[in-house]
Design a protein around this nucleic acid. Structure first.
Lengths: 230, 230
DNA sequence: CGACGGCTTGATCCGAGTCAATCCTGGTGG
DNA sequence: CCACCAGGATTGACTCGGATCAAGCCGTCG
């Protein structure tokens, strides 16, 4: 039985679904299962959670703070694949080896659960199995949107897309608190730090956004941003 | 039970694995299941197989020919997410709506199977269920490599990576037959057709490759290409 | 209050894009 | 069999968006 959910409904508690069979088969079994079997762990700013090439042992849930996942080229160029904030599950992979590195962006608290434990739970819980698959599928969906951004959007469009996406994640909606630095944003958007900075300034001049402080952006004209989103 | 395989072992027949329980539980149950329950269908060059936004009904296996999947921006800029050739499964998604469009690059023969049929088969066949997940995870892995390419590699590196990837897919290894046009390659690599063409010419001048005809590339110096691959 | 790290701004450069001809080459019809 | 044609590919000249290089600025924390 396929059980599909949007990224948001996975991330944010939803009003207690229809319980089936057991207590484990509710609307968001993955983060629940992970919370049940996982262990709380604290990572300080910029510390590595796992590294590319390491064996895959655990799956993670962000309790507080934020995490970046990225790949490096041999000369140090970095591409951040995604950011993970409170409520996000990350590090769920199927293969033996980590495909990327994960680091805490800020001091963070994370639940750490063994993948094999989750997978064996999924053997008796169809809805958990479905959500494991569904979570990977959702990561893929995000990656595909990101491909379009990196391959075909101009700097302004990239930044606008990024801001709208960040706004969609919190329920703050119009005020975006950025947990990450300009360098992180640049490496996520395939730009340089200078271009990110200039583009934000330009959007502020055009009155699409306000920047009360460098880590806080107010999306005062979302319509304008969406227009840029192509 | 997790059952992990590389993209290649999924794509190319492997010497009959260890049969478990039933005949369906072999080494590559997904393409087998798809072949069993699927219907052969022919698509002519440039015809659409499914379109972004349409409901997801089927899953596909390329029998012959080649397929591209892509997203468009409103002004027509196109980003190709991946190419699919003989033996590849594509169009396996978890959500309700197609996230991208699929088109035949050349006249192609494809097996078409209903997703719900496959999913219900997976209910009684753990190894099929595992491979459904594993297939999506593999698409994600490829997408992540592609993110690094689009976000951080220069034109020469992109083309070198592309050629090595294409070579890795066939077992031809050193002679690559390209089913797609320069425009397709450009839209896959986030470049223009002119840049792709110039870069290939440059690689030929540098004696990393030979181009006996525009659709056939000989990777005469793979080491040089790998060096470019960063 | 000073210093450091992160951010912004300015000046200049350059890799890839754009615009514009050709140049194949594979397919067609005479 | 050959000449022609159309669409794809290559090449050239020039442009431009974003990168690079280089100062400053600002806010936070000791």
């Amino acid at each position: 039985m396929l059980h599909q959910e949007t990224y948001h409904s996975v991330r944010h508690p939803v009003p207690m679904g229809f319980p089936r069979r057991s207590a484990a088969s509710q609307e968001r079994p993955l983060s629940e299962a992970l919370t049940e079997v996982g262990v709380r762990h604290r990572y300080s700013r910029n510390s590595e959670i796992f590294g590319e090439g390491e064996p895959v042992e655990n799956v993670y849930l962000v309790v507080s703070g934020a995490v970046r996942t990225y790949k490096l080229l041999s000369d140090g160029r970095r591409q951040i694949g995604d950011f993970h904030i409170q409520g996000d599950v990350f590090g769920l992979e199927v293969g033996d080896e980590r495909q990327f590195t994960a680091e805490a962006i800020a001091d963070s608290v994370v639940m750490v659960a063994s993948r094999s434990a989750l997978v064996s739970m999924a053997n008796d819980d169809t809805s958990l199995a479905a959500e494991l698959w569904s979570h990977t599928a959702n990561d893929l969906k995000r990656a595909q949107d990101h491909l379009l951004l990196l391959g075909r959007k101009r700097a302004q469009e990239r930044v606008a897309t990024f801001l709208l996406d960040m706004a969609g994640r919190n329920r703050a909606d119009i005020i975006v608190e950025l947990p990450m630095s300009r360098q992180d944003i640049a490496d996520y958007l395939g730009l340089t730090i200078e271009t990110v900075s200039r583009t934000l300034t330009r959007l502020e001049d055009d009155e699409a956004i306000e920047i009360p402080s460098s880590r806080r952006i107010v999306l005062s004209d979302k319509r304008a941003l969406r227009r840029l989103n192509a």
